[in-house]
């Protein structure tokens, strides 16, 4: 636990020192969402129908874009190797890094999502479910993204490849989340979807850090 807090604090401090970089995925999120009315139609009803999917796909892309920052700078300056050589559980260490990454990237996405829902006329009764699905699922995005990043860390141009590896794994998250939002929009029960997403989150928390540690071992070879 002390190791977890130590790494978490260190990564949060680093993130706060580089706040401008943190804003980039958010700006990307806002920009892409605002491209859809321009590219598709400004029609109110049509956008409302599209909004859950657009917001979610854009959130996936924004999350993917920011994944590289999870290990990149620590890998480049060698501090990741030193951290991995420290005594203590590597799984906890990786878990702390992913948690810090989620707080610095995923949580801001959740916070500005209501703004996006106004831009795309998401029905107001669906707004709580948008926020809840993002809250449950963005940690899953960070966790699964960590695997892709860790596998491609030592490669040139690993960023694009890691997106290719990660995106298929995001399919269930996308499906359950948008189904929940669309169900909420027509006042259908949604708790089943939340339960499925939460189950996916728990399984990811339990399994992913091990996969990331194994992947980092390959990257350091």
């Amino acid at each position: 636990m002390r190791l977890f807090l130590f790494i978490f604090k260190r990564d949060m401090l680093l993130a706060i020192r580089r706040r401008r970089e943190l804003a980039n995925p958010l700006v990307f999120f806002i920009m892409v969402v605002s491209m859809f009315p321009l590219g598709v139609t400004p029609d109110h009803a049509f956008l409302a129908e599209l909004s859950a999917g657009v917001i979610w796909v854009t959130a996936l892309l924004a999350a993917l874009m920011s994944m590289d920052s999870m290990f990149r700078s620590d890998y480049d300056d060698g501090s990741l190797e030193q951290l991995l050589l420290m005594p203590g559980s590597k799984v906890v260490l990786i878990g702390a890094k992913i948690a810090a990454h989620w707080v610095s990237i995923g949580l801001p996405l959740v916070i500005i999502a209501p703004l996006m829902s106004f831009l795309l006329f998401l029905p107001s009764q669906a707004l709580p479910s948008l926020i809840i699905t993002l809250l449950i699922s963005t940690p899953i995005l960070s966790l699964l993204g960590a695997v892709g990043v860790a596998l491609t860390l030592s490669l040139r141009g690993g960023g694009v490849l890691s997106s290719l590896l990660t995106l298929p794994f995001y399919v269930p998250v996308l499906i359950f989340s948008t189904m929940a939002i669309n169900a909420a929009a027509v006042n259908q029960p949604v708790s089943g979807y939340y339960a499925l997403l939460a189950a996916f989150l728990i399984v990811s928390i339990l399994l992913v850090p091990f996969a990331v540690v194994a992947a980092l071992r390959v990257s350091y070879n």
Partner: peptide, 11 residues
């Protein structure tokens, strides 16, 4: 690396 990805995939 491909082996790890395969196993993440099988889950």
């Amino acid at each position: 690396a491909a082996a790890i990805l395969t196993l993440v995939g099988i889950v």
